[in-house]
């Protein structure tokens, strides 16, 4: 718990310092596009395939449950779709990005720090926060909502196709938006943006100050990924609770 408070404090501090650094130095479109490609574009395949699998698995379990109690799986379809949009989609995609992008960003920045490249940037008059951290933060904040849409679509289609082809029921109920309202979509959007901001911050916080060889790099990656994952879980819960409080 104390470790968590410390890490979120470090991320908040890093965020405010990064914002200040960008105000001074600006941010090039080129750096942003590079990171969008590196962190978001390269995660798209993992997210699409992983979420399609996930949707399939979810309905397999729902089918097993439904056969026991309600008998008709199409009844739970709309509720599952809503759950997918507001809960499963944003959280699972965020965790996937935390693993994929969090690990690669913290590995790269930690090895840069250990190899004194971050010192070299500072002495070259280039602020490492504006040059390294800011493009990643912005790229993830823009990219995670897009990945969430992609992942949710993939999961829902995976679910619908499985129901239709494997269980012989009407799969369209799993893409039936009758329960989905603007609150659900907003909830998902807020989660995606906040997690997108948090993941690169958590990945960088320990990495850009890593000292002491290969061991420090390994440690930075481990803590970076775990803190990014935990942060996503906490953000997910807090946002879900807030929306529940607002809408009830």
């Amino acid at each position: 718990m104390r470790a968590f408070v410390r890490s979120s404090g470090a991320s908040a501090l890093l965020f405010s310092r990064t914002v200040k650094a960008v105000r001074r130095d600006g941010l090039t479109l080129r750096a942003l596009l590079e990171q969008l490609h590196e962190l978001i574009g390269r995660s798209a395949f993992l997210v699409t395939l992983g979420m399609a699998f996930f949707g399939t698995v979810i309905v397999t379990i729902a089918y097993a449950q439904a056969r026991k109690y309600t008998g008709n799986i199409t009844l739970v379809g709309p509720a599952y779709f809503e759950l997918m949009v507001r809960e499963f989609g944003p959280l699972t995609v965020a965790l996937l990005l935390a693993s994929r992008a969090g690990a690669s960003a913290s590995a790269e920045q930690a090895s840069m720090s250990v190899n004194e490249q971050i010192d070299a940037l500072t002495l070259s008059g280039i602020d490492p926060l504006a040059y390294l951290v800011a493009p990643r933060v912005l790229a993830c904040a823009i990219g995670l909502p897009l990945l969430t849409v992609l992942g949710t679509v993939a999961a829902s289609l995976g679910a619908a196709l499985t129901v239709t082809h494997s269980f012989g029921a009407d799969g369209r109920s799993f893409i039936d938006p009758q329960f989905v309202d603007s609150g659900d979509v907003m909830c998902a959007g807020v989660k995606a943006v906040l997690c997108g901001l948090y993941i690169p911050l958590a990945a960088s916080a320990r990495a850009i100050t890593a000292q002491g060889g290969a061991q420090a790099v390994g440690r930075a990656v481990t803590t970076g990924v775990v803190e990014a994952c935990m942060g996503c879980l906490v953000i997910d819960f807090v946002v879900a609770a807030a929306f529940w409080g607002i809408t009830r």
Binding site: N115, E116, Q117, D119, A120, S124, G125, I126
Partner: peptide, 26 residues
């Protein structure tokens, strides 16, 4: 101030020329 680093601290993704130009970027 100029520093010659223990690890060289050169960026392998940039050419030598671009590495040397780094301090002039801003």
């Amino acid at each position: 101030m100029g520093m010659v680093f223990q690890t060289d601290a050169l960026f392998d993704t940039l050419t030598v020329e671009r590495n040397v130009a780094l301090p002039l970027e801003r």
